[in-house]
Design a binder for these strands. Structure first.
Lengths: 140, 140
DNA sequence: AACTATTTTGCAACATTGTTGCATTGTATT
DNA sequence: AATACAATGCAACAATGTTGCAAAATAGTT
């Protein structure tokens, strides 16, 4: 995994630093999306808050991660698929936020249908955020 | 319009206060959604920040306004349709955020298609946020 | 392996956004 | 008009995000 992480950084012309490796590792391990808060805690005060902010910004710009809209004022981030690069995201996929456990899933296999927008509106990106109960919580 | 606003407050068993009237008026005049920031500025330092926060909270609880997910850490609010009440929102409609002018539209007439979620996932609410260029900016 | 240019980090300070407790004020009801 | 209740404003605080700059780490070159 370490190698994959280093490859990802190199592919995006980013220098290999401890914080970037660690944060990418957290994303790889996470089964869902992460907020700044999660990263700050899961990395165990290893890095400065500012470093985390800047690292996340850099990753978004490079198209390594993408932001997920939410209605609760905490931006969540998740790994992008391969075809995002240089800030041009193609993540028209569905996100699911579980009201019970709080996990945010990227449902890559659910495709976002074409929408009939009113005359004159041109869509660049479509985000779908579904909230409800996830399979893990429903089974329990 | 004043009468409509007062009716709305009465219908929701809220006492008629200056701040509630003013904030509802701002929503009625706005052609899109408003963030706390917008309200604070458009009301011209007339009310305390805390009052605005609490008023927005109250309105959301009563189903007068609803929140719109966004990826930029500023919750936006918009007026609900008639059938939202008591915190039970039925706003499965499409929101459009213009990258050019920043306006957030509620596209009430664009219906949200049914999604095929993976086994075990139960959807309670679906939010669709489209970003791009609105008709006003495209025409200019 | 050492040197150097460049990038990244950590710190400090600050700005913005959101929350809570409590005394004061305003609203609704009798 | 008097009372009970709810809402507001203030202060203080907590959380989140940003900026400038010196110190440290990285990458490329010799």
């Amino acid at each position: 995994m370490q190698q994959t992480i280093i490859d990802t950084l190199k592919r995006n012309q980013l220098s290999i630093t401890d914080s970037r490796k660690k944060i990418l590792e957290l994303f790889a391990k996470a089964n869902g999306a992460l907020a700044h808060f999660d990263i700050e805690h899961q990395s165990g005060a290893e890095f400065d808050r500012v470093t985390i902010y800047r690292t996340l910004q850099t990753f978004v710009e490079k198209g390594i991660i993408h932001t997920i809209p939410s209605a609760d004022n905490s931006i969540r981030y998740a790994l992008c698929k391969e075809d995002c690069a240089g800030g041009h995201h193609h993540d028209d996929h569905v996100h699911f936020m579980c009201d019970s456990c709080g996990t945010t899933y990227c449902l890559d296999h659910v495709n976002v249908p074409q929408l009939d927008l009113p005359k004159g509106f041109r869509a660049v990106q479509t985000d779908v955020v579904v909230s409800g109960v996830c399979s893990k919580c429903a089974g329990a």
